[in-house]
Every structure is written in structure tokens, then in C-alpha cells.
Amino acid sequence: MPVALLALALSAFAIGTTEFVIMGLLPDVAGDLQVSIPSAGWLISGYALGVAIGAPIMALLTAKLPRKKTLILLMIIFIIGNVLCALAYTYNLLMMARVITALCHGAFFGIGAVVASSLVAPGRQASAVALMFTGLTLANVLGVPLGTWFGQLFGWRATFWGVAIIGVLAFIALIVSLPTNKEEKPVHLASEISALA
């Protein structure tokens, strides 16, 4: 099993955790930022909107980049977004930070799945993609409850600092382990737009 698959799974774990952990922290966030819990709940919708909008936009913006560079760039956006979440001192800033964090989500999983399948022999491609998405499953089973517990113990901002640190570890792992594929076929924007249509 290539180490790069573990790097992709770690990245998926970080992304999945930051997406869902806010649910367990809503009362803490609402109290700290002086908004109602239903208003704080819009932070979940804001992230979902960022994913929906960000996936096609990021796919188009990064279409000419090599996949390794694209995944690394998306992790940088993810780290910056989580740091901004941890530093946000108003509800509006936190919403903006959540949307920024979400921009990388859909594109990372789409490109990551392609990269994961390219790391193994043809007969093991489905297993490679499944291994990467195991990170997302573990985010729901372990990351979210641990992140919620951590945030309730040390403050909700600590959870986002923690996820940002996991993002940095994933970023380093991607740089070190992902191979540079010299034979990648360039993506044509016209075909991407027609597929979107």
C-alpha cells in the first residue's frame, strides 16, 4: 500500500472533521459570538454552500495544474480557512472563514480519488479510492466526537487550531509522498464545462 494513500486519507480525515465538528460546537460558538443557536446553525449551511460553489470553480481554476500541486494548494486553502475560523471574532468572519475552508472540499475529493486510483495497479483502484475515503468515515466516527469534546474542554477555537495542525501534517505528507506524474494528460476547460452542463 503506497504511503501516499495514507496521506490522502489523513487529508480526508481533516476535511471531514472540519465539515461536521461544528455541529457539536454550536452552543459554544453561539454563546461566544452572541448569536442564537439557530443562527449559528447557518455555519453548517455556509460550509455546504462553499462546497457546492467551490468544487466546479476550483476544478476550473486548477485544471492546468499538475494534480500533486493542486492537492497541495487545496490543503493550503484548507489550513488557512481553519486558522481563520480559530481567529474569527465575529459571526460574519467565522461564516466567511467556513466558506473559504469549504472551497477546497469538493475539488480535493474529486482530484484525490483520481490520484488514489493512479497509485495502484488497475485491479486495486477501487480499494485505493475506498482507503482514501476511509479518512472521511473516520472523521465522522472519531474526529467529530473527539473534536467536540476537545472544543468543549478547551474552547471551540481550540478545535479549529487542532484541525489546522492535522491539515499541516497532511500537507507535509502530501508533499513528501505523492509522486509527480510527468505523463498527466492536460485537462481541457471546454470538456470540463460541457461535463458540468
Rank of each mutant, 00 (worst) to 15 (best):
15 I>G: 04
15 I>K: 03
16 G>H: 09
16 G>R: 08
16 G>E: 09
18 T>V: 12
20 F>S: 10
20 F>K: 00
20 F>P: 02
21 V>I: 14
22 I>Y: 03
23 M>P: 06
27 P>M: 09
28 D>K: 08
29 V>R: 07
30 A>S: 15
36 S>N: 07
36 S>H: 08
38 P>Q: 07
38 P>R: 06
40 A>C: 08
43 L>S: 12
44 I>L: 08
46 G>K: 12
46 G>V: 13
48 A>M: 13
50 G>Y: 03
53 I>V: 15
54 G>P: 04
55 A>S: 15
56 P>M: 02
57 I>K: 09
57 I>P: 06
58 M>Q: 08
60 L>A: 14
62 T>R: 09
64 K>G: 11
66 P>K: 14
67 R>H: 12
68 K>L: 10
69 K>N: 14
69 K>L: 14
70 T>W: 01
74 L>M: 14
75 M>Y: 11
75 M>V: 06
77 I>K: 06
78 F>A: 08
79 I>P: 04
79 I>T: 11
80 I>G: 05
80 I>M: 14
83 V>R: 03
86 A>Q: 04
87 L>N: 02
89 Y>S: 12
91 Y>L: 07
92 N>P: 00
93 L>I: 13
93 L>G: 07
94 L>P: 09
96 M>T: 15
96 M>K: 00
97 A>M: 07
97 A>L: 07
97 A>T: 05
99 V>F: 11
99 V>N: 01
99 V>H: 01
100 I>W: 01
101 T>H: 01
102 A>P: 01
102 A>T: 01
106 G>V: 02
107 A>M: 02
107 A>W: 01
110 G>S: 11
112 G>N: 02
117 S>H: 05
117 S>Q: 10
118 S>D: 14
119 L>Y: 03
120 V>G: 06
120 V>K: 01
122 P>E: 05
122 P>L: 12
122 P>G: 06
126 A>I: 15
127 S>V: 01
127 S>K: 15
127 S>T: 14
128 A>Y: 07
129 V>T: 06
129 V>N: 06
131 L>E: 06
133 F>M: 14
134 T>F: 11
134 T>G: 14
135 G>V: 04
135 G>W: 04
135 G>Y: 07
137 T>F: 02
137 T>H: 02
141 V>W: 01
142 L>R: 01
143 G>N: 10
145 P>C: 11
145 P>K: 09
145 P>E: 12
147 G>C: 10
149 W>N: 10
149 W>C: 02
151 G>M: 12
152 Q>V: 02
152 Q>G: 15
